[in-house]
């Protein structure tokens, strides 16, 4: 029901509506990830292991590409909370994927400063080049295209984050080339942020 005749509560209204997590294959950390987790959990008081849930989920996502129900179960056991409590966290934060994503996840910043400098056009060009609308993964599983909110690099707008690396000052005309460059050179095709640029020198 809506108090305004033109404001139907449509399918997009329930922001939290998402498919149940994929059970996925059996999941345990690799020995290296388990060691990393044990190191991270020591940063928090012994009775506050729950604080390590975000880092633990990052490790799971790194290992498997996305978060499955089995990964949630494993993390819940390690940090000592229920599976529902872990799922509560997974469903809140945007950086956890509950479905498989492409090799390259292209995240175009769509918020004001990037938009003022052509981010909407960048998304259009990327979408046309890859052949998918934002929010989807191409059939080959190479690219996922997402629009995201402010990335905090407004002076180098528009910014595209590819997986965890940044590509700055993207002109709409260069967007198609970025796709080709990623195919041929992988993440080496990205400009990175200032700090990374300096280290490459």
């Amino acid at each position: 029901m809506s108090f305004h005749p033109k404001m139907a509560y449509d399918a997009t209204f329930q922001k939290s509506a998402r498919p149940l997590e994929d059970e996925g294959p059996a999941f345990v950390y690799t020995p290296a990830n388990r060691a990393r987790f044990d190191e991270i959990v020591r940063r928090y008081p012994p009775d506050r292991r729950r604080s390590a849930v975000l880092p633990a989920l990052y490790l799971a996502q790194q290992q498997q590409g996305y978060i499955t129900a089995n990964a949630i179960r494993h993390v819940a056991g390690l940090v000592g909370i229920t599976r529902a409590e872990v799922e509560d966290v997974v469903s809140f934060y945007t950086m956890f994927y509950t479905k498989p994503v492409g090799t390259f996840v292209l995240q175009v910043c769509r918020t004001l400063s990037c938009a003022l400098n052509g981010a909407e056009r960048v998304t259009e060009e990327l979408s046309a080049k890859i052949g998918i609308p934002p929010g989807q993964t191409d059939p080959s599983g190479t690219f996922t295209l997402l629009e995201v909110e402010c990335l905090g690099a407004c002076d180098r707008a528009p910014v595209v984050m590819v997986n965890d690396a940044w590509h700055e000052n993207v002109k709409p005309g260069d967007a198609a080339r970025l796709v080709d460059d990623l195919r041929s050179r992988g993440e080496a095709a990205l400009s990175g942020c200032h700090h990374v640029i300096e280290q490459k020198r």
């Binding site: 003022l116 400098n117 909407e120 056009r121 998304t123 259009e124 979408s127 609308p133 934002p134 629009e147």
Partner: peptide, 11 residues
Amino acid sequence: WRATRALEGVH
């Protein structure tokens, strides 16, 4: 500098 057609992203 804006989109040439309406874009509807999924979030």
